[in-house]
Design a protein around this nucleic acid. Structure first.
Lengths: 221, 221
DNA sequence: TGCAGAATTTGATCTCGCTCAAGGTCTGGC
DNA sequence: GCCAGACCTTGAGCGAGATCAAATTCTGCA
């Protein structure tokens, strides 16, 4: 656990004691964007989707939190409320600390503060990447980019390519890219045919990342 | 200056001494996204555009920095490089500190660290807002939202509405919304006709914010 | 084993917004 | 005062991708 640098057995034990552990199934909402940010969390196992819900019920996925990553860190940004909803993408194990634990914890473990800052920096870049994609790329390339990003963050190497390590429907991909579900299905089908990806219901495997990268750059079919 | 809380005259003088001051004209690039983040900056006067440049030379505007705001704060995010290009939107006065000054400065002025965290939090929200807009709204509503956001961040009240306080071309708005420049022009013209905005070359005034808000919600023409 | 609901696919049609094209207007510098 | 270049507008046409519609396949559960 690189977050809690230099913590011995006893100290680690105390840290875990002060957290509550939650084991949740797919779709479970851990907190919503209007909630007061009374906790901050760490993914131990599984993936947590961070998303925004619009007035008319549409969902826009903003980030996938991988194991070992913090989330719900409004407290680190001097914010009273979360800015997103957190929803389990699969079976997850999550640690939650009360907001009040933050000052003492970061004081005791400078590595935690540093890791948090780095995480925020990386996520900011990711958000900017997404904006650039949406502003400049056609749907096909956006979807390709989104899959590549997911493969990087949540790819499990299998014999036949990188499998996204949690259930992912066409609808999910559409919420991730801002494209229509039907369009997602069409492009996925075409890539299936050319052997670039292989996807059965809720499972997505990037068979030929190189070819998908070509698609993402608009250089190939 | 709320950033440097509790600094007396002498301390403030020392802080300013350690900064270099830059007076630049519109279009001046202060740093680019590939640069090593060897400085961090503060806008004293004017507005600085933060943007990304794509492989084929397109620009996507990510944020406008207002007077009193920090920018180029890669150092606060444990990053060696900037993630955006900074370009003056008008005549600007900017203070720049060497990256190495950050630890001592934040140690001496906890208010600075706090303000930085708050700024990062607000910008994260703004990035998320933008993504939601681009994923769910048609061009007309995106443009309306962008103008309202600008009015809030850089609006100067005049007798006949809120004027965006720096030169803003149709092209700029297009880079801000991901819409085509011609589309921007068409919508601006139509709003001009209905008296919602008033814009002459490079100047934009929101005459009826309420009406523009209606447009942004898709509730009106 | 069969069924209900979820997930996916595919076709047909339509429309928003982009591209292409051209003309108009403003402004600062000479 | 004039000209070049920047900025803005408007029209026509097209196409990517959304919407509408329907059929198909999968899977977990009764």
């Amino acid at each position: 656990m690189p977050l809690f640098d230099g913590a011995d057995r006893a100290a680690l034990h105390a840290i875990l004691e002060s957290a509550s552990i939650r084991r949740v199934g797919p779709g479970t909402v851990l907190f919503t964007e209007e909630d007061r940010a009374s906790i901050f969390c760490l993914v131990v196992e599984g993936f947590v989707r961070l998303l925004r819900t619009t007035a008319d019920g549409e969902q826009v996925v903003v980030h996938h939190v991988a194991p070992g990553e913090l989330f719900g860190i409004a407290v680190a940004l001097e914010s009273e409320t979360f800015s997103v909803t957190a929803k389990a993408a699969c079976d997850c194990v999550v640690l939650c600390w009360p907001r009040e634990a933050w000052p003492a914890l970061t004081r005791a473990h400078p590595g935690l503060a540093r890791a948090t800052r780095r995480t925020i920096g990386l996520r900011t870049r990711e958000l900017q990447d997404k904006i650039v994609d949406m502003a400049t790329l056609p749907v096909e390339q956006r979807i390709a980019n989104a899959l590549l990003r997911l493969a990087r963050q949540a790819g499990r190497e299998t014999g036949s390519g990188a499998e996204i390590d949690f259930p992912l429907t066409r609808q999910d991909i559409s919420e991730l890219t801002g494209a229509n579900m039907h369009s997602v299905s069409r492009y996925m089908s075409s890539w299936q045919k050319t052997g670039i990806v292989s996807s059965a219901r809720r499972r997505v495997v990037i068979v030929r990342p190189d070819a998908l990268r070509e698609v993402a750059q608009g250089r190939a079919a």
